[in-house]
Design a protein around this nucleic acid. Sequence first.
DNA 1: ATTTAATTACCTACCAGTCAGTAAGTAGCC
DNA 2: GGCTACTTACTGACTGGTAGGTAATTAAAT
Lengths: 227, 227
Amino acid sequence: MAVRRAPKPSLATLAPPRPARGSRTPRWRRRKAARPAEILDAALATFVEGGYAATRIEEIARRAGVSKGTMYLYFRNKEALFRAVVAHSMVPMVERGEEIARAHRGSSRDLLSSILLTWWDSLEASPASGLTKLMVAEARNFPGPTRLFVKEVFLRRRRLLTRVIRRGIRNGEFRRVRPELAVRLAIAPILLASIWKHSFQQRESQPLDLRALVRLHAETFLRGIAK
Amino acid sequence: MAVRRAPKPSLATLAPPRPARGSRTPRWRRRKAARPAEILDAALATFVEGGYAATRIEEIARRAGVSKGTMYLYFRNKEALFRAVVAHSMVPMVERGEEIARAHRGSSRDLLSSILLTWWDSLEASPASGLTKLMVAEARNFPGPTRLFVKEVFLRRRRLLTRVIRRGIRNGEFRRVRPELAVRLAIAPILLASIWKHSFQQRESQPLDLRALVRLHAETFLRGIAK
DNA sequence: ATTTAATTACCTACCAGTCAGTAAGTAGCC
DNA sequence: GGCTACTTACTGACTGGTAGGTAATTAAAT
């Protein structure tokens, strides 16, 4: 027997189950507008759980409450679907951070702290946080989407925080650290926590209070680079 | 066309290429003792690059300088090979950290700093560092190996560092932070750097000096939790 | 009645796993 | 030292099941 993939304890579906054949309600509905987003959401969740290669199109279809054939009405093939997932999930991740920065007034300390906490909260809330783990896992296999992700999410966020740190150094709040290094230290615990959440989280005995972790991080990091 | 996996720009093989059919040297040699380790090394590298499902047994065989059939002489099936890779790669990762701790005498500050730096150096040097990324990617698909890895590597390392932090708090070097949170902050940048190295590293414009990053981390973190 | 979103049945490339065969090594014999 | 008989590490063509992708068909909506 060919054991291609590890068996997965498939979780609950995202979409409601379709009515049975005999029922009065139609077996399916035509919902051309809603399908793409539903499929992309289901695809993100499934890809994040099992990785690209181990994910079956049919499983995504099932979760999106749609048949396999329908998948190919909206996406040319599996890889195109993957690319669309990356592009689609990226948007919410990018937008939040920037608008926080624009809105903020005050010290660099407070700004940094506020960005980190809000960033975590939006990661915590959104399934898009799974994208990070997904990209880490598939980076080598998909250079195109990876470049896009690195450029539009990672580098962009890093640039934002680098500016904050530079400002803090300039006006004497922070000591003279190399900003391109310090920014990675600021980011690391949050990024790792979100990767964690999508891989080992459930295995650990007690669900740690990750928000408290991020708060301690902001505090500790700021003390660490304070003048 | 079935696009099952992304095409991989297969890198140089680990084992020397076998001589061609006509040559004087034998087409293969009997090296029963050396095979398992060679296969495991090739398997680790290949799994780390592409992930479990996208990795073909034949590709691992090629890199190990062996035929596909031979793979099945040494490992029952693909999953057994994967499990063996995890178990085999774990040993060097665990050993180092503990012996460092045993050897060290001095302040908690110095001990912590020394553990972090030495840990990074061994991660940097060893291909076993790829195991972290691999486990992050495959955690959901392989509960067994994941449990083993979490228990024998993560929790063990965390416990070691937690002890150091506790000691530091007790003897007044560090302020009263929650050790189980602080330890994660200490670990995060290093873990993330090693994941980085195996996913995005090559894509980035300039290869950052990661050791300098770890040094700055140790310094910043210690300032951050200092009393 | 017509259009087309969605389904279902089907095709086929791919790869994990198998096994009959081959040749590298080895020991016994002269 | 050289020849032969034997063992077994190793090879690679082959198979079967799985899952990506397609085409014929159905039924929702207007």
